[in-house]
Nucleic acid binder design. Structure first.
Lengths: 112, 112
DNA sequence: TCGCCATATACAGCTCATCGGTATATGCTT
DNA sequence: AAGCATATACCGATGAGCTGTATATGGCGA
């Protein structure tokens, strides 16, 4: 396991792979969709993340296809990867909830 | 403004200052509470973040007190800082929601 | 009274994820 | 012919955060 926080690009790569296996470029498109166009991964960021996550055992190669003489390597989220992502979701929810509450307290004070 | 994602320590420092002004050590304790003990900021991380956030105009010095011949510098979240934090909360909620949905899809498939 | 812990701020050096840019290759559109 | 979408990959630079350390005071237990 790992106790550190995941960075946003890493979190989104795992999220993109959570529902079904996808190849690199598919992850790139998917992350853009998930983030509502706010996040466009750099190619370097994506493939570095995929290598790192493979080494951690959180993702693995699902299959390889050749389409128009171009390689398509599909990655899949592993069970440990899904567990790690779920833990990160909980962690982030706790933090965003705290932030929301405090921002509300703040506006309440501002009105007082 | 800024379109990049906030890292976890930075996000938590802003959150700690959202409700009321606090001094450095108070932020340190508060972040531990918010995160349920999962995150303990390093002193170096904290003061570097405070300097950076001051330079961005997201936090500012509220007041200084001397307690037991020790300086206590209180920081306060500014309005732009509150706006930035609120934007980051929304961004994170969008991402965590997507991750949750996909993890559920995944377990649904596993059961099929 | 000696050491340890909590409080409190500060800095220096390192690591590593991410960024920016580039290379390579194909096929479709303008 | 140029440009864009698809597709993977590498390399150097950046910078937030981490580790460790220095400084200082006061309280507590051995």
């Amino acid at each position: 396991m790992n106790d550190g926080a995941l960075r946003e690009p890493t979190f989104l790569v795992l999220t993109a792979l959570a529902a079904q296996p996808q190849h690199g470029y598919g992850v790139l498109r998917d992350v853009e969709t998930i983030s509502g166009g706010q996040v466009t991964l750099r190619a370097g960021t994506l493939y570095a993340a995929l290598d790192r996550l493979s080494a951690e055992g959180w993702v693995e190669v699902d299959r390889e296809e050749v389409v128009d003489s171009r390689l398509r390597r599909y990655y899949r989220l592993t069970e440990p990867g899904a567990t790690r992502l779920a833990a990160e979701v909980q962690r982030r929810q706790r933090h965003t909830t705290a932030a929301e509450q405090r921002l509300q307290l703040r506006s309440a004070e501002g009105l007082a």
